[in-house]
């Protein structure tokens, strides 16, 4: 069990995510809420990281920042060496489109669109992807999650586990640098949850960087690294021996 210092890993060439003193303060009326206090974190390409903590610990805030859905109040965030904390709204959209695949607790699929169209959605906002190409890639992604036969189904015709797999296919389609999953098994029964987690395991084995936000220890146990947050601070950042043993 080795603790990694930020300074050590920041210089490594395969550092995918480097945050320095990342701070987020919300103004709730007159009260200032410090959701995140000086979080410095380095995540290398190919890592499988769980971000844990009780509610209110800043997990969601950290995930929103890492996912470029939000910008920090202070501090810097380097994604593949590029400082994304100063980008404008349009540039952030582009980064999300190219580099990040989101998986949400509530799946967040478009209810009226078929699985195929849902998976294609990111390509709609990407540059120069023809319709035929988009369709081919979407079918490909659906195959990766084992849902080739459900391409023309709408979300309400699919089980929760299947919907989440569609969401994962959507996250994969643009071949992102990071897959960010926020409580991906929170709404699922144990069986489907296990399948989804197995899917993340496999994606990580294929080389994808996966970051899971969870409060479930059994979920975190599968990851190779666990970052614990409390009151907006990183309180522990450990490599997970259990997961090494499993392999």
């Amino acid at each position: 069990m080795a603790s990694l210092s930020v300074e050590e890993t920041a210089v490594q060439s395969d550092a995918l995510i480097v945050t320095r003193e990342l701070t987020k303060v919300y103004a709730m009326g007159d009260v200032q809420v410090h959701a995140l206090r000086s979080v410095s974190l380095t995540i290398r390409s190919g890592e499988y990281v769980a971000i844990m903590g009780p509610s209110g610990s800043g997990k969601s805030t950290l995930m929103n920042l890492l996912g470029c859905l939000d910008t920090p109040t202070s501090g810097a965030y380097y994604l593949l060496g590029e400082d994304v904390s100063t980008l404008n709204d349009n540039q952030l959209s582009e980064v999300r489109n190219r580099r990040i695949g989101f998986v949400f607790q509530t799946y967040n699929l478009l209810p009226r669109a078929t699985a195929l169209h849902n998976v294609q959605l990111p390509l709609l906002y990407a540059h120069r992807v023809s319709r035929a190409e988009a369709r081919r890639r979407a079918l490909d992604a659906l195959q990766q999650v084992g849902l080739s036969d459900r391409a023309e189904h709408r979300p309400r015709e699919l089980s929760g586990g299947q919907q989440q797999r569609v969401a994962i296919a959507r996250a994969l389609i643009n071949n992102p640098d990071i897959i960010l999953a926020d409580e991906p098994t929170g709404n699922l029964d144990t069986q489907s949850g296990a399948e989804i987690l197995a899917l993340f395991d496999r994606l990580n084995e294929l080389g994808h960087t996966v970051i899971l936000v969870t409060h479930d220890h059994s979920v975190a146990a599968r990851c190779k690294r666990v970052v614990q947050l409390l009151d907006g601070r990183v309180v522990s950042d450990e490599l997970n021996n259990a997961s090494d043993d499993r392999r």
Binding site: F102, N108, L110, Y125
Partner: peptide
């Protein structure tokens, strides 16, 4: 609103 959030999360710009 949720649909707009989803579209933005996967990369839709304001102008889209």
């Amino acid at each position: 609103t949720r649909e707009i959030g989803i579209r933005k999360a996967v990369g839709a710009k304001r102008r889209d």
